[in-house]
Simulated assay, not measured.
Amino acid sequence: MIFIEIKENEVLDRALKRFKKKVERVRVLKEARARMHYTKPTIRRKAEKAKAIYRNKMMHANNA
């Protein structure tokens, strides 16, 4: 469970922003979305490989 303590005289928008950052770091939403539908291990590996290739391509494009 994620807790955020609102400090004295803190604007609610600021506390909400901190909460969103904390949720993003813990990857709660990403895991929940991933569990909504079953993906086969082969499809998951294929997607991870495609992401790695894309990242590698972008890294080399930026360095060139």
Rank of each mutant, 00 (worst) to 15 (best):
M1G: 04
M1D: 12
I2A: 05
I2T: 02
I2N: 01
F3C: 02
F3A: 06
I4D: 00
I4S: 00
I4F: 01
I4C: 04
E5P: 10
E5V: 03
I6Y: 01
K7Q: 11
K7T: 04
K7W: 06
E8F: 04
E8R: 01
E8C: 02
E10Y: 03
E10S: 00
V11M: 02
V11Y: 02
V11D: 02
L12Y: 04
D13M: 11
D13C: 15
R14A: 10
R14M: 14
R14H: 13
A15F: 10
A15V: 11
L16V: 05
L16K: 12
R18S: 04
F19P: 04
K21C: 09
K22H: 08
K22V: 09
V23Q: 09
V23A: 15
E24A: 15
E24C: 12
R25C: 15
V26E: 15
V28H: 15
L29P: 09
K30R: 15
E31C: 05
A32P: 00
R33Q: 10
A34F: 10
A34Q: 14
A34G: 01
R35F: 12
R35D: 13
R35S: 13
R35Y: 08
R35K: 11
M36T: 11
M36V: 14
Y38V: 05
Y38F: 09
T39Y: 15
K40A: 06
K40Q: 03
K40D: 04
P41M: 04
P41S: 00
P41R: 05
T42K: 01
I43N: 05
R45A: 03
R45V: 03
K46P: 01
K46H: 07
K46D: 03
K46F: 02
K46G: 01
E48K: 05
K49P: 01
K49H: 08
K51N: 10
K51F: 11
A52E: 11
A52Q: 08
A52N: 06
I53H: 03
I53G: 02
Y54W: 06
R55H: 13
N56W: 07
K57P: 00
K57A: 15
M58D: 06
M58A: 07
M59K: 13
H60F: 05
H60D: 08
A61V: 09
A61L: 14
A61P: 00
N62R: 10
N62C: 09
N63C: 08
N63H: 11
A64I: 05
A64H: 11
